[in-house]
Structures are given as structure tokens and as C-alpha cells.
């Protein structure tokens, strides 16, 4: 229903008035342009500039050329944290899709109750990452937390679980938290893709005798490819930039094994107070992120009909 009205509106825009003048367009984008210059380009240039300096929080700054970048290449902790971030990104993105796809299929029904469930699944998305992490920190508390009380009350375990004391359980609870918090958003993106598929196509396939699985694999999935790629790009980018969940829940432990890339920027800048080195890591991470996004955008550009 929603999709058909959307499509008719789009047709109206396509057959609309001729293009307005160029200067008018510039005037319209000026606020946005200013926003980008002041909040993105200026800080970016400053970051690059600072990365050539030894820039302590206290005391004098000193130009050191590319020394920060040279140190960065030999910084094993940093490479470890980059590797960890990639591992986390792969796992969490897979987990989010595994949860969000079935949810999207479930709530893609013309039933009134589906709207109710959409709201329920989407609700954790509106909580900030910092607040959600703090909340889970309390839920996970072994002495007074809800999880420990429930599990012990149900008689499943004798002593409270302490997942934050070893690597895989710690990573596991963080992924669990992130899936709980963000799967609803991915569900909505996938849902828009699902709803843009015309019922006629599905109907025709059904008449031709395609099974449920092959209808999903050969019709639904290819037709909602753009939504899938969009969800993928957003999830990968936000996972590569993960900070709050590790800063608050695992605090980098155990034995510094859960320090994400952004966390190491924080540590360089606000624990070692080396703002120049922190800037160098920031810029290096930006390059990595642009590369990853570029690859994903190539995928996004390929329309299904071209592929």
C-alpha cells in the first residue's frame, strides 16, 4: 500500500517543472555547504596539521614532520586494535543481519499488529550508545545485576557469570548489546527494500511454482539489493568507529584485548595526552575507512539490472 503511493508520487516529480537556475541551487545548498566546511573540512585540516607536531596537552608544541606516522607504523598495540576492530566489524555485522533479516520478514505483513512489533523492535535504536552501554554494564553486574539474579534464580548456574574477565565472552556480550540496540534500525532499512518489491512479481513466481526459498533467493534478495548494501555500509562504518561500548563495558580489558581503533585514538589523546599522535591515528583511520566505504560504494553503484 505504502509503496504504491510512494511510486505514484515519484512519477509526479519526474514529470515536474524545468530545472531552476544554478545560482538558486547554490543558495539552497549553502547552509549545508557551510556546515560541512565548518564542522568537517576545517577540523580535518587541523587534524592533519596537528599530526605533524609533537603536541602535548601541557607544554610547547614542536614540529616533527612525519615522525608520528613513522611511530604509528611500528605501534603493535595500534595494529592489534585495528585487527580487533575488523574482527568485531565482521562478527557484529553478520550478527545484526542474522537478527534483522528475519525480523524484517516477520513485520512485513499487512497486519495491524505488525506495526506494534516494528515499534517494539525499533525502540532500543533511539537510546544513545553511551546510555545503552551503561545500562548493560549494570545488567551485567555480577553482584547486583539483573542477568546474574535471573540466571541464579532460575537455577541455571551456581555462581554469577563474569563475562568481562576473558576475551570471547567479553566480545560476546558487547555484540549481544549492539545487536539488541541496532538490529531494529537495520530491520527498518531492509523493510523499505522488502516493501518496494511489487506483489505482482511474487505472485507471478508463485503461479510459476517457485518455492518459498527460491522466491526469497531469486526474487526478493536481488530486488532489495540496494537496501542490503545501504544497511551493510552503515553497519560496517559504525562498527569500524565503535568506541562507547568498549570504553564503557569492557574498558579495553581483559589485558587490553578489546581496544578498538577509536579507543586507541582516545588513549593516545586523553590518557597519554599526545594530541599530535592521536591526530595521526585519526587521519590513518580516516584513510582506512574511506577505502572500505569506496569498495562498498562500488557495490552500491552496480544496479541489479546492470549486474
Amino acid at each position: 500500500m505504502v509503496s504504491s503511493t510512494l511510486r505514484s508520487r515519484r512519477r509526479a516529480v519526474a514529470t515536474g517543472e524545468p530545472e531552476p537556475k544554478g545560482w538558486l541551487g547554490l543558495a539552497f545548498i549553502l547552509p549545508g555547504l557551510l556546515f560541512i566546511v565548518v564542522l568537517f573540512l576545517v577540523p580535518l585540516v587541523m587534524t592533519v596539521w596537528m599530526s605533524f607536531y609533537n603536541w602535548p596537552l601541557l607544554g610547547r608544541t614542536k614540529f616533527i614532520g612525519l615522525s608520528n606516522y613513522a611511530e604509528l607504523i611500528g605501534d603493535t598495540q595500534l595494529w592489534h586494535s585495528l585487527g580487533f576492530t575488523l574482527l568485531y566489524t565482521v562478527l557484529v555485522t553478520a550478527a545484526i543481519f542474522l537478527v534483522a533479516f528475519p525480523l524484517a520478514l516477520l513485520v512485513d505483513r499487512p497486519l495491524r499488529i505488525a506495526g506494534f512489533f516494528r515499534t517494539i523492535y525499533f525502540m532500543p535504536v533511539v537510546i544513545g550508545f553511551g546510555a545503552a552501554s551503561t545500562l548493560w554494564m549494570w545488567l551485567l553486574n555480577p553482584d547486583s545485576g539483573v542477568f546474574a539474579q535471573l540466571l541464579r534464580g532460575a537455577g541455571i548456574i551456581d555462581s554469577a557469570p563474569r563475562p568481562l574477565e576473558s576475551f570471547w565472552p567479553a566480545l560476546g556480550v558487547v555484540i549481544l548489546m549492539v545487536v539488541w540496540k541496532t538490529a531494529g534500525f537495520t530491520m527498518i532499512i531492509l523493510l523499505t527494500g522488502l516493501q518496494s518489491i511489487s506483489n505482482d512479481v511474487i505472485e507471478a513466481a508463485r503461479i510459476d511454482g517457485a518455492s518459498v526459498w527460491s522466491r526469497f533467493r531469486r526474487i526478493t534478495l536481488p530486488l532489495m539489493r540496494n537496501s542490503v548494501v545501504l544497511a551493510l555500509v552503515l553497519n560496517v562504518t559504525s562498527s569500524m568507529l565503535a568506541f562507547d561500548q568498549f570504553f564503557i563495558i569492557t574498558q579495553g580489558g581483559p589485558e587490553n584485548s578489546t581496544i578498538s581503533a577509536v579507543f586507541s585514538i582516545y588513549l593516545a589523546s586523553f590518557s597519554s595526552y599526545r594530541l599530535g599522535y592521536g591526530s595521526a591515528i585519526s587521519f590513518a583511520l580516516l584513510v582506512v575507512l574511506v577505502a572500505i566505504s569506496a569498495i562498498q560504494f562500488v557495490l552500491l553503484r552496480q544496479r541489479p539490472e546492470e549486474g
Binding site: 579495553g252 581483559p254 588513549l267
Partner: peptide, 24 residues
């Protein structure tokens, strides 16, 4: 001169010394 980096930081060497030697 580097209290935060040596001692206070949750990822600093002093905390890892205690965690590693007592529980490791």
C-alpha cells in the same frame, strides 16, 4: 609526570601488571 598513562588508565601498564600477575 605521567600518572594517567602509567597508573590511572584502565589500559595502562600498572593495571595490567596486577591483573596479569595475580590472576594470570
Amino acid at each position: 609526570f605521567s600518572s594517567d598513562e602509567l597508573f590511572v588508565s584502565r589500559t595502562g601498564p600498572f593495571l595490567n601488571l596486577i591483573q596479569g600477575t595475580i590472576f594470570g
